[in-house]
């Protein structure tokens, strides 16, 4: 299964055989977006076009297979940036047509869950899945990854990764904000500042998130310190902010498991690479008797292997391929696992 991922700034091409990862080639335009503090869609789309064929060949070479060995093609058809998605969709359709193999348009979010199968084997079903990245923060109930994924909750404002980016900017740390905050926080005290935990009141939606208030609270706190001429401890702010995010994410994920009588949790998306999130999630799952599965850091962020992994799962489940007029859907709902 040859997988194409171009929903944002990463051109990811992956190859899997069943649940075995063969290769995972990546080209990124992140450096070109850095000075804008966010992904510029047109720059990302231009980069996808340039990177496409070379990245396909890097994936083939890494896997030691030929194009003619490919039995099926999968591509992220949404959600994501329309212009970026369309480069991948068009490329995947052309490769599938020319190779004479079936094409599967897949949901990016479900692919973040599927990638875990490459490292930890078949997913227990039902599982609870939490996806946290720069663009998505959601909790899902997954009775059947190939054809039944149900949203339980999601962010009502910023995504978790977006909050990391914005707080990094407040602290003069580089974009994207996840890795530098994780690094700074190692030397900081997570209890130094009591930042708010959004949407955790008794009457709040149990599985929804809100990170906008937290981001504002951090900015206000830093401004107040600077106004008072107090030196800001970047490690303490980073650690306290990170703790607030991680606390809310893990509490809600564990609660979703408990409420639904599910004893397996899988966490995916770029923020799942955060060391504190991984540690706290493990602690809380252990205490609650939940089996936690998190892909290795490399596979948490967007990549082509996750798309191939979901494509593979669809074939296994006997799901029909996509129609030849497959397009992209920037707001593809999570309930649509394959388009």
């Amino acid at each position: 299964m040859l997988g194409f991922e171009t929903s944002c700034d990463e051109t990811g091409i992956g190859l899997v055989r069943g649940r075995t990862l063969l290769s995972d080639a990546l080209a990124t335009s992140m450096a070109e977006h850095e000075r804008f503090g966010g992904v510029v869609p047109e720059i990302a789309s231009r980069a996808h076009l340039e990177a496409m064929v070379p990245t396909v060949h890097r994936a083939l070479a890494d896997a030691g297979v030929a194009l003619t060995d490919v039995d099926a093609v999968a591509v992220t058809s949404g959600p994501g940036l329309t212009g970026a998605l369309l480069v991948g969709v068009a490329a995947a359709k052309a490769y599938a047509l020319a190779l004479g193999v079936p094409l599967y348009g897949v949901n990016h979010l479900a692919a973040h869950v599927a990638v875990d199968e490459l490292e930890h084997g078949r997913l227990a079903e039902p599982s609870i899945a939490m996806l946290v990245s720069g663009g998505h923060s959601s909790i899902l109930l997954v009775p059947d990854l190939a054809q039944d994924v149900q949203p339980l909750g999601q962010t009502i404002d910023d995504a978790a990764g977006e909050a990391f980016d914005k707080v990094a900017r407040v602290l003069d740390l580089p974009f994207p904000g996840g890795p530098p905050i994780d690094r700074e926080a190692l030397a900081g005290d997570p209890r130094a500042i009591a930042f708010p935990r959004g949407l955790t009141g008794p009457r709040d939606a149990a599985y929804d998130f809100s990170f906008s208030g937290l981001k504002t609270a951090v900015a206000r706190w830093v401004e107040a310190q600077q106004r008072d001429g107090v030196a800001v401890s970047v490690p303490d702010v980073a650690a306290s902010f990170q703790e607030a995010v991680v606390d809310v994410l893990t509490a809600k994920a564990v609660r979703a498991c408990r409420d639904h009588g599910v004893d397996h949790l899988v966490i995916g998306g770029g923020v799942a690479a955060n060391s504190r999130l991984r540690a706290v999630a493990q602690e809380r799952c252990d205490a609650a008797g939940i089996v936690l599965r998190v892909p290795s850091r490399r596979l948490c962020t967007d990549n082509g292997a996750m798309v191939a992994a979901l494509g593979s799962r669809l074939v296994e489940a006997g799901v029909a391929p996509s129609s030849p007029d497959l397009g992209a859907d920037s707001s593809l709902p999570i309930t649509v696992v394959s388009a």
């Binding site: 966010g38 510029v40 959600p79 990245s133 720069g134 995504a159």
Partner: peptide, 20 residues
């Protein structure tokens, strides 16, 4: 491609486009 114009350097509001 013959783009003829430079990209509009307006970053997407979020790092990833999806608001989910």
């Amino acid at each position: 491609p013959l783009y003829l114009r430079r990209p509009d350097a307006v970053p997407n509001i979020t790092r990833k486009a999806v608001s989910q």
